[in-house]
Design a protein around this nucleic acid. Structure first.
Lengths: 106, 106
DNA sequence: CAGTATCCCTTGGGATACTG
DNA sequence: CAGTATCCCAAGGGATACTG
């Protein structure tokens, strides 16, 4: 497999929301706009370097909107785009299944 | 982060179905029982070593049932457990979102 | 406050050869 | 047919220091 072709739509979605943090970031942004450090404090354990990269990827994938106020001290706000917000259904399904799994399996 | 604690149910689900192949395996098994080589032929590009490991993990997670007929030549069939089958909702949501994403974004 | 720049380490998964 | 055993590599992400 030289090129990792992704053919299936399910795979596309997994590519976009996969990884350690993205779903958590989306989860927090579902409640509204948040600033960078505010997000970092919510996502216990994430480094600002990682948060920075995750947010940029999600911005490129058009899931979130970055609003830089160009103030001193800096102020940048992140919010979900309509596309990002439309992931809510999947997140809810995953939340529900995760609870069931934790209750049923082991 | 010495221990990668997973607190959120959404994260639990992502842990279980994340990775390159699991959703595809589930997708194929939704149509019914399949044998090992049959699965490998369907999942273009996967090596038997990787398929073997993915299936074992999914068996441990109780998503699939492994049925070894103890015949010569060997015959092993894999099918979804009820728990595994209950992921169908999520897969469908992800499929739908993936299609929309591919149509909308870029 | 909101980031970049380096460096490093773990993990997922591929290639290939061998086995009951 | 249905695997296991070795070996290897790239990518994700953590730790830390620095910056506008």
């Amino acid at each position: 497999m030289p090129t990792k072709e992704v053919c299936c739509p399910v795979e596309v979605t997994l590519k976009i929301i996969g990884g350690r943090w993205k779903v958590l970031i989306i989860h927090h942004l579902l409640n509204g706009t948040m600033r960078f450090n505010e997000l970092q404090r919510s996502l216990t354990g994430i480094t600002h370097r990682t948060l920075s990269r995750q947010l940029r990827e999600m911005e490129i994938h058009q899931l979130i909107v970055r609003n830089n106020f160009n103030e001193i001290p800096p102020r940048v706000e992140y919010s979900l785009s309509p596309l990002g917000h439309s992931l809510k259904t999947i997140l809810l399904s995953m939340d529900e299944w995760g609870r069931k799994y934790s209750a049923v399996a082991k």
